[in-house]
Design a protein around this nucleic acid. Structure first.
Lengths: 203, 203
DNA sequence: ATTTGGTTTAACCATTTGGTTAATTACGGT
DNA sequence: ACCGTAATTAACCAAATGGTTAAACCAAAT
């Protein structure tokens, strides 16, 4: 076996299980089994459960955060920019459907402990600050309604992320089987875009 | 001490800790400490951790689900009804801010195991089916845009619930301290209502 | 005062769990 | 072939954890 092969398999197994069961719900033995290796290897490559978890968590955050930036970078008119973001972001999350709930859940216990310090991955925050300004300017020019930018932003995030976080709840409430929910997700991008577009019309 | 006093204190302590740390992250000892009693009392009143958890979980579900019904029961015009729901629901969640994330997280591991079978608490599902019909009819009369009802409903839920689920993420991204977030929540009802109202305007 | 019933506690138990160790194996360079 | 280093494993360990037990406590009924 390649040198890094084992290491990589551990990471992948750990990722799968941590994402599904969270830090507290995950057993090192289970990761080892899933990776098809001895439990001691986990500690050989990563000192502790905590360290392995931090690595997985950090990668998960990367998958769901920095991508925010790209869609917000260009200088499209605000309305198009927001719609472009929705499309890019939903597509991004669809590739990592379990990440948002995982990150949020872990984040909710460990207040800010090992979370992105504004310096380290401060890009999103600054990018958002800039976006808030753009929104305000667009509103001053009367291009979109004057929702408080923070609320508008949370609305957009909510519409995009919520179905992935609340999947079991939604399926239960709306009586969708897995197939139906997949269809629902396929329509989702277009429907969120339409809903948002309508909400952004000037009165 | 009253007879049921201890029992009640256990439930309250268990609720607090389960809600915060989830089933897997909670230690029986911690519940006992929080309730100021001996660990054995937990097993005296509730057979096992699982049983205590189920009780807490069931109560949590009740706090966040059946209330849905009331706001949807009357026969207001669809637009007013949806807005009324948003107000009622956000207010309801504000009183139990940790419940949604807790329920969703626990639900995501235990697919449907001990979740509401359609018969037991089937009221929400039927109520929703009825609402879907009302929406369709209103759309046929041209009162609101023809968003697929399921998407419209998920949108409403998302706008209402998401800030409570994603609080740490939002605070981090938008650089809000606790005070700022409280203010944000106070504005939230009105802002969601306005956003939704705008999205429901006929083109 | 004694009994009786539920309540409470300290001590205990078996299993699980994260982590370690010492020995074994695989292998590239000489 | 041999050496040295990294990779891998089985066995082990101490602490934590859910759960049990037997004895003590306490209040009301007799």
């Amino acid at each position: 076996m390649d040198k890094s092969d084992t290491r990589q398999r551990i990471i992948e197994a750990a990722r799968r299980i941590f994402l599904q069961k969270g830090m507290a719900g995950t057993r090192m033995q289970e990761i080892a089994d899933a990776a098809g290796i001895n439990k001691a290897m986990l500690h050989y490559y990563f000192r502790s459960k905590e360290q392995l978890f931090k690595l997985v968590f950090a990668e998960a955050v990367k998958e769901i955060f920095p991508k925010v930036e790209k869609a917000l970078a260009g200088d499209l008119p605000i309305r198009e920019k927001l719609l472009a973001f929705v499309r890019a972001y939903i597509s991004q999350i669809r590739e990592h459907p379990f990440v948002p709930l995982f990150v949020i859940h872990e984040l909710s216990n460990r207040p800010t402990e090992f979370f992105m310090e504004p310096e380290k991955s401060g890009a999103p925050q600054k990018m958002l600050q800039k976006l808030m300004q753009e929104i305000i300017h667009a509103q001053q020019r009367g291009e979109i309604p004057d929702y408080p930018p923070q609320h508008l932003w949370v609305n957009i995030l909510a519409l995009s992320i919520f179905p992935f976080i609340a999947r079991p709840l939604i399926q239960q409430l709306l009586q969708m089987d897995d197939k139906a929910f997949e269809r629902f997700l396929e329509e989702r991008t277009a429907q969120v875009a339409r809903f948002l577009d309508q909400a952004l019309r000037i009165a």
